[in-house]
Simulated scan of single mutants.
Amino acid sequence: MEFIRTLNGDIAPEEVGVTYSHDHLFCIPPLWKEKKIDDFMIDDLEASIADVELFVAEGGQAVYDATAIDYGRKPTELKAISDRTGVKIIATAGFNKAIMWPGQMEGTGGTFQQWIDAHSRQEIRDHVVHELTVGMDNTDLKGGVAKFGTGYNTISEAEDKVTRAVLDAHKETGCPIHSHTELGTLMLEQLAILKEEGVDCSRLTMAHVDRNPDQWLHRKVAETGVFMCFDGISRIKYHPESILIDCILNLVRHGHEDQIVVGGDIARRTMFRNYGEGGLGLGYILGSWVPRFMEQAGEAGFDGKALFDKFFVKNPQRAFVFKQ
């Protein structure tokens, strides 16, 4: 049995449609709130809805919202966005990365780090399974993906424990998995943990691979079968679009077009169109980047339209599926 779990229930994979495979539509990260970093507060429901409507206007139909509990996940607000726009939203169980864990974990009286340190791998697995099968944050809204993450060239003891607990939850539920890589580091090291734990790497979507545009590394990672998420589009401070497109086309050239997914990861007010800062917004990838990509793909001898269908429709159908 295969299905994709959205905030409005389970759907057949072929129903998901044109999908952004990594974004943040509404979130209030506890640590950044405590530090008063306002740009990370994606906390205006009407502004978020207006941006999602830009995505819909460009043909968008589904979003994987990669916001885990430690990054300020708000499932009720996400469902409201889904209900009002018609966009299917896949939400996130699990955790993000240790840099966020000094933040206060609601309902515990302590930080995320304290909670993780106080719980065993098995107890963390049970927590993640609950989020996937019962509900998140005292609601009946279920996560559709389980997430783990690592730091910049570091895997803390707590991150290792959480990673293995998330993999245990995957084994128990058949859920898809998503990982945060800080600036694209430790991709092979994460995959080594999956292999140690006997987890099929093709069940993982790896975020931020384009922050580290090392084409040799990308090929080695892709050879494991993992889905690779290019989610740095428009972030020119990291790399120009030409670098990202070169990396994508190099993977296609080596036969890995069935493993590429795309998202915007626009987790800042200044990147949204409707948060008062005039950013490019959620419509940018489909409305502006995709035509450019298709043109450059054609110039390189590829069928840009067919690649669009794979990256935004066919590959997400496989990347985000539960298998039971």
Rank of each mutant, 00 (worst) to 15 (best):
V321S: 08
E196A: 07
I245S: 08
I69A: 14
Q317V: 03
T111A: 09
A297G: 03
D38G: 09
T224N: 05
D200N: 12
V313E: 08
E2Q: 11
T85A: 12
Y71W: 15
G278Y: 15
L244Q: 12
D83K: 13
T163P: 00
Q190L: 14
M206N: 01
L194D: 01
H130T: 11
R235G: 01
R125K: 15
Q324P: 02
I42N: 08
V262N: 00
R203A: 05
H24P: 04
E15K: 11
G278T: 10
K161S: 02
C247W: 09
V321W: 01
F312M: 15
G60P: 04
T111Q: 06
H239C: 01
F26L: 09
I116K: 10
A80T: 15
I155A: 04
G225C: 03
A158V: 02
M271C: 10
E299N: 06
V313N: 07
L54A: 05
Y152P: 00
E196P: 00
K305H: 12
S120M: 09
S242F: 13
D137M: 14
D246H: 12
S21H: 04
R269L: 06
L54P: 00
K35N: 09
I28V: 15
N212T: 06
L307D: 10
G276H: 13
I116H: 08
G143N: 06
D309P: 00
V145M: 05
I11W: 04
E189K: 12
A66Y: 02
R121Y: 01
W32F: 12
M105H: 09
A222I: 09
G264Q: 06
A165Q: 14
E189H: 13
E157Q: 07
E197F: 02
V145E: 04
D140Y: 09
Y20C: 02
R269Y: 07
S242Q: 15
E46H: 06
A300L: 04
F311G: 01
Y20K: 00
D65N: 15
A146D: 09
A300Y: 06
V290R: 07
F302Y: 15
A12M: 13
W289A: 00
E196M: 05
T19G: 07
S242H: 08
I99Y: 11
N96Y: 15
H178K: 15
I89K: 07
I4M: 10
W216L: 12
I69F: 07
A50C: 00
V128M: 12
G143T: 13
L282Q: 15
I155M: 13
S288V: 11
D117C: 02
P176Y: 09
N274Y: 03
H208P: 00
A300S: 15
V226I: 06
H256K: 10
A267E: 05
I89R: 09
P30S: 05
P316A: 10
W101Y: 13
G184N: 12
G263Q: 03
S156I: 02
H170D: 07
E196T: 01
E15A: 13
D43M: 04
A207Q: 02
A267F: 14
V226N: 03
G9Y: 05
K147T: 03
K305F: 13
T173C: 05
R203T: 08
L132Y: 11
N8Q: 14
L132T: 14
K310G: 06
S288K: 14
S202G: 06
H24E: 09
T139L: 10
D160P: 00
A91Q: 11
K147N: 03
K305T: 07
H170E: 11
S21E: 04
V18G: 10
G298I: 01
A91I: 10
D117A: 13
L141M: 08
P291A: 04
